[in-house]
Design a protein around this nucleic acid. Structure first.
Lengths: 222, 222
DNA sequence: TAACAAGTTGACCCACCGGTCCGGTTATGT
DNA sequence: ACATAACCGGACCGGTGGGTCAACTTGTTA
């Protein structure tokens, strides 16, 4: 819209920048429950201005998350040329988890309709991951019965697991990435009990704690 | 209270039962964000009645969750006598994940103050798990550098991972339990990159999406 | 500098949610 | 059958959060 039609007014551009910065910080600190009002206050602008730039809170979140996703995809692409395919995959997972410490992307796996540009970027990222996984597999670094989807699904697990320990050391997640990655190795291990799922997602599912619009598809929970 | 003083009136007992059933169903479908009003409606009783039985939404959740936790602890205790310690641990993790399909207990790992009875039960459960893990370790079924805490933390991962795939087959989680459990095996695998955390929790941290009381400890998110 | 469009703002709207309260209802013991 | 205490329910309260709007300000362009 504004970005294509006109060059955007000077003050508007400034506001947009500090809005994005504030949103990133706020989402990182409070999670998806961060309120638009708080973000606006932090950015030093009025709440109305937020909605002028992004018609919806979800769109704001999408904007914040977009470059992280693109960055991850770029990293994956770079790592696809590294000789040691196994090490490349591990490094990617390391980087992914590391960045999740700052902002949870896990909802990306389900939110099929967050934003057109975002879901496009997500698609690219998933494709790059697929390349990484298949290379690692061809190199014998991970077992043959692993599908790229599996890695995508497990990608966020280390961060999630660690999010439950109170004063977690900043790199505790590496421990769990280590365990999970060892589970991907071809060493011992019998056959897996279930085939991988078809796809991660493409239907509209909402990020948890975001908008209680429909009857909600229900995250299965104990 | 009511359960100790007096035998509880007939209609009250009936209402309490249907309330618990409704709460369980609603929490399972909508997660922690299920509203008390919805639960009351589903139970066919007034909202006031809900609060008469449980002073707080959190207490209601605790009541719903309590017997599941106790059931899991009982299972763990039973499995502690099974000869094959490795198989016993795997079976426990299988049962735990299986029940999580119905109601997510992951918040147990952080909610230190949900309810006295609940956190007591949780303590027992964790202790039983510790026994299971140490036995499996002594039997050489899982690697020596795994701590019981690790298993507790990873326990809910398979369910969580699967919660992102749209129309997941009901036992897809077994695939990821398989991968993770393989990561616990003593086979190949170098040393783990980080020591285990001290404890899972004992300080008051709120379940996500439950009450926005304090400034929130912020689930680290990407 | 004049004039207009683009941008800004915060009061306002509305829906939701946890929790309270009191007038009315009903089970229960005698 | 009656008295009574336990119980029920829904209107109500205070707070919150996403989103709207009309009046006002400001950058831009001629």
């Amino acid at each position: 819209m504004t970005s294509a039609d006109r060059p955007l007014r000077a003050d508007a551009a400034r506001n947009r920048a500090s809005l994005l910065a504030a949103a990133e910080a706020e989402f990182a600190e409070r999670g998806l429950t961060a309120s638009v009002a708080d973000i606006a206050r932090r950015a030093g602008i009025g709440k109305g201005t937020v909605f002028r730039h992004f018609p919806t809170k979800e769109d704001l979140l999408a904007a914040v998350v977009l470059d992280r996703v693109d960055g991850l995809a770029a990293l994956a692409r770079r790592l696809a040329t590294v000789p040691d395919a196994g090490a490349a995959l591990l490094e990617f997972l390391d980087a992914a988890a590391s960045r999740q410490q700052q902002l949870d992307l896990s909802f990306l796996r389900e939110a099929g309709d967050l934003n057109d540009r975002l879901s496009e970027s997500r698609g690219r990222l998933f494709q790059e991951i697929t390349v990484l996984v298949e290379r690692a597999q061809a190199a014998g670094a991970i077992r043959a019965d692993i599908a790229p989807v599996d890695v995508i699904l497990l990608m966020c697990a280390p961060t999630h697991v660690v999010s439950f320990v109170p004063d977690a050391p900043p790199d505790l997640w590496r421990r769990y990435l280590g365990i999970i990655f060892d589970g991907l190795r071809p060493d011992g291990a019998g056959p897996l009990p279930h085939p991988p799922p078809e796809a991660v997602s493409d239907r509209p599912v909402r990020a948890a704690g975001m908008p209680p619009r429909g009857p909600q598809p229900a995250t299965p929970q104990l």
